[in-house]
């Protein structure tokens, strides 16, 4: 168990290091001179040189990389060129929108998908099963931003139940904030729920074919008990894997959904940064999202060991 855990953690750290090198190469080495790219074609030589100095571009590459990484480790993401404030401040401000959005979507997706998957698996082969899975099949094909537009049209434009976009800030009250996250979370979470429901159903059917399920049934347990006590628990591994992957998708998905709903989250931040060529902000947000994806995958890997005792013995 300890072996397994330490190996996964080591791999997580190495992946993060490798990812940081990729981000550094793409955003600091490939553009040639980031200062020139950020200031644009018409910048004066003096301005470019001043920014080069401010960004430490006159230093050798290795030193630049290590000072960047060292900064990240102590929470120094550099200073935004357009906003003239530390990138970390921008990120913490925006994450207060993006993180709740991703979490609510994940929650919605899970509480819909697992019961639907269970329901469908327990009625395998019936009309209800095929009907439910047909709906899920369509759900998988729906792009979340299109679904978002439809939701805006029905609930914001026609029925006027919720705002069509914008975010009042958490200072305006938790309910006001949550209200403007309702449609975005549904738009983001429902198509994911369709995927997760299909995975849950097929994982359950997989497990239901195993010998120990037959044994459990033979010893007199009801179908229901077998489903909940034995099958669901064992079907959790593929479900957890997909959940971990989905969290990465949801985080990246917030980038698009925030643009549909004009939410001031990390996604909007990164797009504004791209148009303003504020590479330091892009770098910071990308690193943060990548680190989150790696961390979530690590947690999923570790939770396998909790769900499946057989994995604990493996190194």
């Amino acid at each position: 168990m300890l072996n397994y855990v330490s190996k996964r953690i080591l791999i997580g750290i190495l992946t993060l290091l490798a990812a940081s090198i990729v981000v550094f190469i793409v955003l600091e080495i490939v553009p040639g001179d980031p200062a020139r790219l950020m200031l644009g074609m018409n910048a004066t030589e003096d301005a470019v040189q001043a920014l080069q100095q401010q960004m430490g571009l006159d230093q050798p590459l290795l030193i630049r990389y290590f000072s960047w990484i060292g900064g990240l480790l102590v929470g120094d993401f550099g200073k935004s060129y357009t906003y003239s404030v530390p990138v970390l401040n921008l990120i913490t401000e925006r994450i207060a929108v993006s993180l709740p959005l991703a979490l609510i979507s994940l929650f919605l997706s899970t509480i819909i998908a697992i019961p639907v998957g269970l329901f469908s698996a327990s009625r395998r082969g019936t009309m209800t099963d095929s009907g439910t899975m047909a709906i899920a099949q369509v759900g998988v094909a729906i792009p979340n931003f299109w679904f978002a537009l439809l939701l805006v049209y029905v609930f914001a434009v026609s029925l006027r139940l919720v705002p069509a976009g914008g975010f009042p800030g958490w200072n305006a009250g938790v309910w006001a904030g949550l209200k403007s996250l309702i449609l975005p979370s549904i738009a983001l979470g429902l198509p994911q729920a369709a995927i997760l429901a299909r995975v849950t159903r097929s994982a359950l059917l997989d497990v239901l074919g195993e010998d120990y399920i037959r044994t459990a049934r033979a010893k007199g347990l009801t179908r229901r008990k077998v489903l909940y006590r034995h099958a669901l628990r064992n079907a959790l591994i593929p479900v957890l894997t997909i959940l971990g992957l989905q969290f990465a998708f949801l985080l990246a998905g917030t980038i698009i959904i925030e643009n549909v709903f004009y939410l001031p989250g990390l996604g909007r931040l990164v797009f504004q940064a791209i148009t303003q060529r504020d590479l330091i902000v892009v770098e910071g947000v990308v690193m943060l999202l990548v680190a989150t994806v790696i961390l979530v995958n690590l947690l999923v890997d570790l939770s396998y060991a909790l769900v499946d005792p057989r994995l604990r013995g493996r190194s």
Partner: peptide, 18 residues
Amino acid sequence: DLVFAFPALLSAVMITAV
């Protein structure tokens, strides 16, 4: 593991930024 840490949208963001 490394490539999976960059969802397609995120790589697109980086590539477009440059």
